[in-house]
Amino acid sequence: TTVVVGNKKYTFDNPEAAEKFAKKVAKKLGATVHKTNGTFKVK
């Protein structure tokens, strides 16, 4: 599962961990999490 934050990509074996990370980053940046085909995008 990939999490994309700006131009950085983070890969997780565990989708739950990926989602948690994405939400944490989004909260910090005041952004939102978008899920597309198993990829979480923070923007």
Rank of each mutant, 00 (worst) to 15 (best):
V5M: 04
L29H: 06
D13Q: 11
A18Q: 00
K23C: 12
F12C: 04
K28S: 09
T36H: 12
N7K: 12
V42A: 01
N7E: 09
V3K: 00
V4W: 13
T2F: 13
K28H: 12
N7M: 10
A18S: 02
E16G: 11
V33H: 02
H34Y: 11
K41W: 15
A17F: 09
F21R: 01
N37Q: 06
K9W: 11
P15I: 10
K35P: 03
A18V: 00
A18H: 00
K23L: 13
V5D: 00
E19F: 13
Y10F: 12
G30M: 05
P15R: 08
A22W: 02
A22P: 00
K9T: 14
E19I: 07
P15C: 13
G30Q: 05
E19Q: 06
E19L: 13
T1A: 13
K27Q: 10
V4C: 11
E19V: 06
T11Y: 15
F12Q: 01
D13F: 10
A31P: 01
K27H: 10
V42S: 02
T32D: 05
E19H: 07
A17N: 09
T2P: 06
K23W: 15
A22N: 00
T39N: 15
D13N: 10
V25E: 04
E16M: 12
Y10V: 04
G30K: 06
E16R: 11
K23M: 14
K9Q: 11
F12M: 02
A22G: 03
T1H: 09
T1Q: 06
G38Q: 05
V33G: 01
T32G: 06
K9D: 05
L29R: 03
A31S: 06
L29F: 07
T32N: 06
K9P: 05
K20D: 13
K43W: 13
V4D: 05
T11A: 08
F40G: 04
K9L: 10
K27M: 09
A22M: 02
T11L: 14
G38P: 04
T1V: 12
K24D: 11
F21L: 03
A31Q: 05
F21G: 00
T32I: 10
F21A: 02
G30Y: 04
G6C: 13
K9N: 08
H34G: 04
N14V: 07
T39C: 14
K28A: 14
F21K: 01
K43N: 12
A26W: 00
K24C: 14
V33L: 07
G38E: 05
T39A: 14
V3H: 00
K9M: 10
F40S: 05
E16W: 12
G30N: 09
L29V: 05
N7T: 12
V33M: 04
K27C: 09
K27G: 07
K8P: 01
V3Y: 00
V3E: 00
E19T: 04
N7G: 07
K28I: 13
A22E: 01
K20I: 11
L29W: 07
K8S: 08
V3G: 00
V3C: 03
F40L: 15
T32W: 04
A22T: 02
T2Q: 10
G6L: 07
N37C: 08
K35G: 05
E16T: 09
T1L: 06
T11R: 13
K20T: 10
A18N: 00
V3Q: 01
E16Q: 13
A31C: 05
T39S: 15
K35S: 07
T2D: 10
A31L: 14
E16H: 11
G6S: 04
T32H: 07
V5W: 04
K41N: 14
V4I: 14
K20R: 14
F12I: 02
K20S: 13
Y10D: 00
N37K: 08
N37S: 05
K41V: 15
V4R: 06
A26T: 02
E19A: 06
V42Y: 01
F12Y: 04
A22H: 01
A22S: 03
G38V: 02
K28P: 03
V3T: 02
A31F: 10
F40W: 14
A18I: 01
F12K: 01
K8I: 08
T32V: 13
K24T: 10
N37Y: 03
G30R: 05
A26K: 01
L29A: 04
K27T: 07
K20G: 08
K8F: 11
A31Y: 07
K24Y: 14
K41Y: 15
K43F: 15
K27R: 09
T36L: 10
Y10C: 06
T32C: 12
A31W: 15
N37F: 03
N14W: 07
V33W: 06
D13P: 13
H34T: 14
G30E: 04
K41T: 15
G6A: 06
P15L: 10
A26S: 04
V42K: 02
A17R: 08
V33E: 02
T1M: 08
A26E: 02
G6E: 04
F12L: 03
A26M: 02
H34R: 06
K24F: 13
V4A: 06
V42W: 01
K27P: 02
N14R: 07
F12H: 02
T2A: 09
K35I: 11
V3W: 00
K35E: 08
T36V: 15
K43M: 15
G30W: 03
A22F: 02
N37R: 04
K8H: 10
Y10T: 03
K24S: 12
V3D: 00
T32S: 08
L29D: 02
K24Q: 10
T2H: 13
V25S: 03
K9H: 11
V25M: 08
Y10W: 14
T11G: 06
E16I: 14
V33K: 01
V3I: 02
P15Q: 10
K35D: 05
A17S: 11
F21D: 00
V25A: 07
A18D: 00
L29Q: 04
H34P: 01
K8E: 07
A17T: 12
T36G: 09
T39L: 11
G38A: 05
V33R: 01
G6T: 03
E19M: 08
K27W: 07
A18E: 00
E19D: 05
T2M: 12
K20Y: 10
G6H: 08
V4M: 11
V42G: 02
D13E: 10
H34A: 07
G6M: 08
F21P: 01
V4S: 07
T36Y: 12
V33F: 05
G38W: 03
T32Y: 06
G38H: 06
K24A: 14
G30D: 05
V25H: 03
G6W: 08
V25Y: 04
K41R: 14
A26R: 01
V42E: 04
T36R: 06
N7F: 08
T36P: 02
T36M: 11
K8L: 09
K8T: 08
K24V: 10
L29Y: 07
A26F: 01
V5C: 06
V5N: 01
T11Q: 12
D13T: 13
E19S: 06
A31V: 07
A18M: 01
T32E: 09
K23Q: 14
F40T: 06
N37H: 05
A31T: 08
A18C: 02
N14I: 07
G38F: 04
V42H: 02
L29T: 05
K24N: 10
T2C: 07
K9V: 13
A22Y: 02
K43C: 15
K20W: 11
D13K: 10
N7Y: 10
T2G: 05
V42L: 04
V33A: 03
G38N: 09
T11K: 14
K41I: 15
V5S: 03
T39R: 08
G6Y: 12
P15G: 08
H34S: 12
K9S: 11
T36D: 14
Y10L: 05
D13R: 09
F40I: 15
N7S: 12
Y10A: 02
K35W: 14
G38C: 06
K35T: 07
A22I: 03
A26P: 01
T1E: 03
F21M: 03
T11F: 14
D13W: 09
K23E: 12
T11V: 13
F40D: 04
K43A: 15
A17D: 12
K28T: 08
V25T: 06
T1D: 05
F40E: 05
K28N: 07
P15E: 13
T2Y: 14
T36A: 09
T11E: 09
A31G: 15
K23T: 13
K23A: 08
P15K: 06
V25C: 08
A18G: 06
V4H: 09
H34C: 14
K41M: 15
L29P: 02
K28G: 05
K27N: 08
T39G: 15
T39F: 14
P15T: 09
K8A: 10
A31K: 03
G6I: 06
K24E: 12
T1I: 09
F40K: 04
T32Q: 10
N14P: 02
G38M: 04
K9R: 13
Y10R: 03
V4Y: 14
V33C: 05
V25Q: 05
N37P: 05
K23I: 14
G6R: 06
K28M: 12
D13G: 11
F12E: 00
